[in-house]
């Protein structure tokens, strides 16, 4: 029985895949009454130096005692010394995050998921349609385009929010325009001080000259907005393969293991959050799927 070995031993468990790494909050920028951007830096400098992500990816942030939440990265992927997360205080974890201060330490796992096709869309016109808290996962794309402006054709950002007070990053729009991006902003409800467009995002499509042969559409926002953005894009004969969507689902593990984020055959955390629309189409118009 020599070759038959005892197997009952206690082995240390390698749980690195669920363990958070620790990051310090270095700055907090209030964006709206219930949204702030948290700038994080890993406590371990080598971890910070080795960390990189692609536009559209997300991290799991961990608040001990409260749990984890999936938050997209809203900062420039070219910036290596800090990571930005724009967070809306709406669930258990994020409401607890709202009470944190600069200097506090939180857990971070990531980056996870697919990214916007920033390389594949070089040479194309880019049409970004976004609503509300859907802009943060697209801001890294805007920064990427700004750093590589000559690689892209016409670039348009059509962005909307419920009111002017709900707009993300309004102080940056001028910089984006100067970098050669057409920034068009609309609000659902206006007051006397609002000089711009009023109405939901998809209804402005008709005002833009979109060359269906060379335009890539990127969209993120409330699912109802995404639905109509796609409707408008398809009506302009933009091929399914040139439409990219970032979706939100309940996520717990980030690795396609826990099952929460499933959408048809996909695990949104690993096969998404950014999908090419032709992959999503069979499942997209099913209610409650």
């Amino acid at each position: 029985m020599a070759a038959f070995q005892t197997t009952a031993v206690s082995t240390p468990r390698a749980n690195h895949w669920l363990e958070p790494n620790w990051a310090e909050i270095t700055a907090i920028a209030n964006e709206t009454s219930d949204v702030s951007t948290y700038w994080l830096k890993f406590v371990d400098p080598s971890m910070q130096a080795n960390y990189s992500f692609k536009p559209g990816q997300f991290n799991m942030i961990h608040l001990p005692g409260f749990g984890e939440a999936a938050i997209s990265i809203s900062s420039d992927s070219g910036e290596r010394d800090k990571i930005g997360h724009t967070i809306r205080f709406v669930g258990n974890v994020t409401r607890a995050v709202s009470r944190l201060k600069v200097g506090d330490v939180i857990g971070l796992r990531g980056p996870f998921g697919t990214s916007w096709p920033v390389e594949e869309m070089e040479g194309k016109d880019i049409f970004i349609a976004s609503g509300g808290i859907g802009l943060p996962p697209l801001r890294p794309v805007i920064y990427h385009i700004m750093r590589n402006r000559e690689k892209y054709g016409k670039v348009t950002l059509l962005y909307g929010a419920r009111t002017a007070r709900d707009l993300m990053y309004p102080s940056e729009y001028e910089n984006w325009r100067q970098a050669g991006i057409d920034v068009e902003v609309s609000v659902d409800r206006s007051d006397a001080n609002w000089p711009g467009r009023v109405g939901v995002v998809p209804m402005w499509f008709y005002q833009f000259r979109i060359d269906a042969r060379k335009t890539v559409v990127l969209t993120c926002g409330p699912e109802i907005m995404i639905r109509f953005v796609i409707f408008e894009a398809l009506a302009r004969r933009i091929p399914l393969e040139n439409i990219y969507v970032s979706l939100e689902r309940n996520m717990k593990c980030g690795q396609g293991s826990c099952g929460h984020c499933q959408l048809g055959p996909y695990f949104v955390c690993k096969d998404g959050p950014v999908f090419r629309f032709d992959a999503l189409q069979p499942y997209f118009n099913l209610e409650e799927f």
């Binding site: 009952a8 031993v9 240390p12 468990r13 001990p64 200097g103 506090d104 330490v105």
Partner: peptide, 15 residues
């Protein structure tokens, strides 16, 4: 202190 220390649980299951 300001941070958290992680200790992994062990698998104590027999074969």
């Amino acid at each position: 202190g300001a941070g958290w220390e992680t200790s992994n649980s062990r698998i104590d299951s027999p074969g």
